[in-house]
Design a protein around this nucleic acid. Structure first.
Lengths: 81, 81
DNA sequence: GAGCAATATACTTTAAGGCGTATTTATTGA
DNA sequence: TCAATAAATACGCCTTAAAGTATATTGCTC
């Protein structure tokens, strides 16, 4: 299971989902990633275009990784609409 | 085929590889992504911690996507390839 | 080794990410 | 209902990604 990220909103949604699934609070993720709770909030709400290293640290705190994958043009893509 | 990105160097390597495979110059990718050639150079060399939106634009110029994937600590998984 | 194309550096300016801290606004549970 | 907890906003400050532009370097091919 992997989520394609094409916007900061996509990222926020993926992060929030993963966090909820692990029953963690924003402040927990923040501490693990060495960032502020407010930043986790901003990222989850797609309110900021975070830096790559920040994104990776937050994902890491959730046991997630970032990956580069070939773009698939086949099939319906809901993110386009 | 997907590449796990855990550092700006990982990203740079992935981008350079994809660019070479498509026989594109840095300036071509830069124009497609609406960034400077110098920035593509910096990113490929891991010299900068780019912003998420910048990364996505550059990847998009190479027909690549960013994805969030569950972390696999068990190293190499042959079933994936 | 000349000459050209591609990549790497340089410099200044601008925009914005991220911090610390604090407070406000939901959300939830007893 | 009303505390307690979690999430969202606020503000001043500092840092830095990225811009535009220019130049220096490297790499190639003849």
């Amino acid at each position: 299971m992997s989520k394609i990220i094409r916007s900061n909103r996509d990222l926020g949604a993926a992060i929030r989902l993963a966090r909820k699934q692990q029953n963690l609070r924003q402040v927990d993720v923040a501490r693990k990633a060495s960032v502020r709770q407010a930043l986790v909030s901003d990222i989850e709400n797609g309110a900021t275009t975070a830096r790559l290293d920040t994104v990776m640290r937050v994902l890491s705190a959730l046991d997630l990784d970032l990956a580069v994958v070939p773009r698939r043009t086949t099939g319906f893509d809901p993110t386009e609409y």
